Amino acid sequence: MHVRTLTGGLAAVLVMSFPLLDGRAVAAPSADSAVPVVAARVLTYDASGAAEFKSAVDRGAAIWNESVDSVELRPAASGQRANIRVVADNGWPRAVPGSLGNGTVYIGRQAVDQGYYTIRIAAHELGHMLGLPDRKPGPCSSLMSGASAGTACTNPYPNAAEQAEVEENFEGARTGALM
């Protein structure tokens, strides 16, 4: 699990906040010790059309938020245009990306009816929105192996390689160079 932390920068702020007992201020740390704090790129999603799969979509987004630091998936506010639209239909699950972080996810009931795990489906399809391709055939340990892992596979978590690829895809968001 990744945790967004403020290590050296937070320590410096705390030290700077407390004067010494005799009232003198504490010296600022050198520029070499400062840790830049960079926010994740926020992508919004609208799961209002996901019907009975809305909670699976919310959990799939939470899994990605737990797994990577460079991007964060948040539900869109009422009236806000979302980067990712999620809808339920009777076909096979699929994603139709427009560009990195933008597009439509379909949570198809056909796969659910065949016994595939809804949270894995949601996390897998959101993975496409984060720039990941299918990796079929593949083991259950690979989220992007999708249906090729079989109906017994309930792993909704991206593996280390998938996490690293998403981090790389959104690296520009952390430097301000993306979008």
Rank of each mutant, 00 (worst) to 15 (best):
M1V: 09
V3Y: 13
R4E: 08
T5D: 09
T5I: 00
T7D: 13
T7E: 14
T7N: 13
G8M: 08
G9W: 00
L10E: 14
A11I: 10
V13F: 06
V13W: 04
L14V: 05
L14I: 15
V15A: 15
M16L: 15
F18K: 11
P19V: 14
L20Q: 14
L20S: 14
G23S: 12
R24M: 01
R24K: 14
A25R: 13
V26L: 03
S30G: 15
S30R: 15
A31G: 08
S33Q: 13
A34Q: 14
A34K: 13
V35I: 12
V35Q: 13
V37P: 01
V37I: 15
V38K: 14
A39F: 08
A39N: 10
A40N: 07
V42C: 09
V42Q: 03
D46V: 04
D46H: 05
A47I: 03
G49W: 02
A51G: 10
E52R: 02
K54I: 14
S55K: 04
A56Y: 00
V57Y: 05
R59H: 13
R59T: 15
G60T: 00
A61I: 03
A62Q: 15
A62V: 06
N65K: 00
E66S: 15
S67Y: 09
V68T: 03
V68K: 00
V68M: 07
S70C: 06
S70V: 00
V71P: 01
E72S: 06
L73K: 09
P75E: 07
P75F: 08
A77C: 04
A77W: 02
S78V: 14
Q80A: 11
N83Y: 09
I84N: 04
R85I: 11
R85T: 13
R85F: 05
R85H: 10
D89E: 10
N90K: 15
P93H: 08
R94P: 08
A95W: 06
A95R: 05
A95P: 12
A95Y: 05
A95S: 15
V96A: 14
V96Q: 12
P97Y: 01
P97S: 04
G101H: 05
G101F: 02
G103F: 00
T104K: 11
Y106E: 05
I107D: 04
I107F: 12
R109F: 11
R109T: 02
A111P: 03
A111K: 03
Y116R: 01
Y116T: 05
Y117G: 07
I119H: 03
I121Q: 05
I121D: 02
A122Q: 09
H124D: 02
H124Q: 07
E125Q: 07
G127F: 08
H128N: 06
L130T: 11
L130F: 07
L130W: 05
G131L: 00
G131K: 02
L132G: 01
L132I: 10
P133I: 04
P133W: 15
R135D: 12
R135M: 14
K136D: 05
K136T: 09
G138H: 15
M144L: 00
S145L: 12
G146R: 04
G146T: 08
G146S: 01
G150H: 03
C153Y: 06
C153W: 07
T154C: 10
P156I: 02
Y157K: 03
Y157R: 08
P158E: 05
P158M: 08
N159Q: 09
N159E: 07
A160G: 02
A160D: 03
E167H: 03
E167I: 01
N169Y: 14
F170G: 04
E171S: 10
A173G: 10
A173M: 09
T175Q: 11
M179E: 10
M179S: 13
